[in-house]
Nucleic acid binder design. Structure first.
Lengths: 128, 128
DNA sequence: CAGAATCCTCTTGGATACTG
DNA sequence: CAGTATCCAAGAGGATTCTG
């Protein structure tokens, strides 16, 4: 046992923080949208590319591979010509949906306040 | 009027996605840890720097400024010599704590599975 | 259709030195 | 103490071209 008294302010290490571990998974630009696209079930590669506005094939493939490697996404290939490749969330991936939905909800409810704060901040620190 | 029938798969735009808006706020490397450091109340600049292992002053200041601009963090200065500068979460910032805690909790519970999936993936796609 | 490969740019973040 | 300023390296991500 290291200590009986709980320190007021324990140190925070990047490597052991649960936040950071999750951010390591979902913090890049397209990950959230890709997971979002699979929310209702499996979906083909091409349809994802069409639904997610502005994404390039490179980023779509790259992000899907990363999610597959992390065990959040499953890839199913029907070897026809042309091939059919479908992606869906694994149970682990689906377990991320709930916390992500709450974050998304927070964004929907509060982003206007963030934008207002930015305008206010910029006004305060520019012209005076 | 564009359409009366709701499409099965509506498009997903980066600009209007609640996820992405939140990620715009919390997705950089240190933000989560900095918010985490203020979870229990206000804290001085220097103490944050010491508690968050590995952070540079530059990134600490830069990230705090961004959070302040976004209205999530308050800065309170006591103009003594040397100055005392304390940071704390605004109500808006505190409202982010709950969804972030859930994400952190997910990370604590599931990150081992992600790591296992990575090992498995790398084994599968390297040596055969 | 579902990608792989290449090139290139822009941003993020680390190291270091200086200041009221 | 609490920053600012500058330089630099690494990585994320976009555009384009090619392929089974």
């Amino acid at each position: 046992m290291t200590s009986l008294v709980k320190p007021k302010h324990p140190n925070i290490a990047l490597a052991v923080c649960g936040y950071s571990k999750v951010l390591d998974i979902i913090s890049n630009k397209w990950t959230a949208l890709i997971i979002y696209a699979m929310e209702d079930g499996s979906i083909r590669y091409g349809e994802m590319a069409r639904r997610i506005e502005g994404i390039s094939k490179k980023m779509l493939t790259q992000t899907l591979r990363k999610l597959e490697r992390d065990g959040l996404v499953q890839r199913h290939i029907t070897p026809s010509v042309p091939p059919i490749v479908e992606y869906s969330l694994t149970p682990l991936g689906e377990s991320l949906l709930q916390p992500m939905r709450e974050l998304r909800q927070w964004g929907r409810e509060n982003y206007v306040r963030v934008e207002a704060a930015r305008v206010n901040f910029d006004l305060t620190y520019s012209d005076d």
